[in-house]
Simulated scan of single mutants.
Amino acid sequence: MKTDKVASNGPGALWNRWIASIDIRSYTMIFALIGIWVLFSFMSDFFLTSRNLSNLFVQMSVTAVLAIGMLLVIVAGHIDLSVGSIVGLTGGLAAILQVWAKWPTWSVVIVTILAGVLIGLIQGWWVAYRSVPAFIVTLGGMMAFRGILTGITKGQTVAPMQESFRTIGQSYLPQGVGLFLGIVIAAALLYGLWNARRSRIKYGFEVGSPLIDTGKAVFFIALTFIFIFLMSSYKGVPFPFLLVIIFAVIFTFLANKTTFGRHIYAIGGNNEAARLSGINIKRRTLMVFVLSATMASIAGIMQVARLNAATISSGTMYELDAIAACVIGGTSLMGGRGKISGVIIGALVMASLDNGMSIMNVESFWQQITKGAILVLAVWIDIYSQNRKKSGKVA
């Protein structure tokens, strides 16, 4: 018996438990992202410069914000095809209020976000309380909102925005603030590690090797400070990317630490079981569409602030980028599974492909073909992994 106990705690057993605990899909996407960066760095010396990486993180911010909002919709078993048109409509509304009506920035931001909430309530009501498929409701919204945008702007480009508004999409954090942010993130990672281990010990769950857990924390802390160093060597951490981090933290807490988040995953995992357990599915469905449209309105503000203008083509096809970022990041289109961290990685993959191929002067149609092929591949990997799990359970 002693021999068996030693064997179960030996190096081989620890290694096997570590391998089993790894989220293969997430790490595959991280390695894929690194591979993309290495490939483009060989093709162009400009790709890994601080300036280009800063532009890359600014470019991915809108997609990341959209994808964060989209995540809960997909996890709940639905889809939102209207977010790109909501970006255009709410961005156009913000520009009209500021440029034509001369409203101050703070009131423009509040009204624009409230417009997103209203859109989410309307679409969510049709899906949740009138049982119209989300695909149809949001497809109709995609066309209707684009038409409304053309109507209220009269087909014109609305510009320029006030300087205070432009800071939302064009400003950078001072170096000292960026360093402080890195310290805060490092402290949060270490606290999260300690708190997770303490909780597992408290409730009698198996705890992984402290050396491995510490190694993971050190790895991500090192990445954080490398990122801050690279950004500081140009202009500093971009403010739009700071917003992405803030929303990622909020939605991670919402998804993992609240009853609402657990209900959304339960609904997507098994709708009937969720209903029988007493979950108010209609109310939860309404809320995920409100959150998605609200995040789309925030993305619309960021987009207009970065470009200093609102156009009728703003946000076109953004819904596909958001869906692709979710799927590439490991979110299952079947519902019930997905992580915010994976969404951020997926958005980075999409933005890196756009950025790298633009630097290489690859024609736009090849960029679309490449992104489409990667999306199909990501969905196939998801289906393949799920089938393997099912076959393993059967076996």
Rank of each mutant, 00 (worst) to 15 (best):
G10L: 08
G12C: 00
L14W: 03
R17G: 13
S21H: 08
I22T: 08
L39R: 03
S41G: 10
F42T: 13
S44F: 00
F57L: 15
S61H: 05
A64N: 06
L66I: 04
A67G: 10
L71I: 12
I86S: 08
G92T: 09
A101K: 10
W103G: 08
S107N: 11
I113G: 00
V117N: 03
V117R: 05
V127C: 05
A134V: 08
T138K: 01
T138D: 01
A144H: 07
F145S: 04
I148E: 02
T150A: 14
T157F: 08
P160K: 11
P160S: 11
E163T: 14
A188K: 01
A188T: 12
G192E: 09
L193A: 10
W194R: 12
F205V: 09
L223Q: 04
I226Y: 13
I228A: 03
L230P: 01
F241E: 03
V244C: 09
I245M: 15
V249C: 12
V249I: 15
I250F: 12
T252N: 14
A255L: 15
Y265Q: 13
Y265N: 08
G268C: 04
N270Y: 02
N270W: 01
V290G: 02
S292E: 01
A293Y: 06
T316Q: 15
E319Q: 03
A324C: 08
I328V: 15
L333D: 01
G335P: 03
G342N: 02
V343Y: 06
G346W: 08
A351R: 11
S352T: 15
I359Y: 01
I359P: 00
Q368R: 13
A373W: 06
A378P: 01
A378E: 02
A378T: 02
I381M: 15
D382N: 11
Y384H: 14
Q386V: 06
N387P: 01
G392T: 06
V394H: 13
A395R: 13
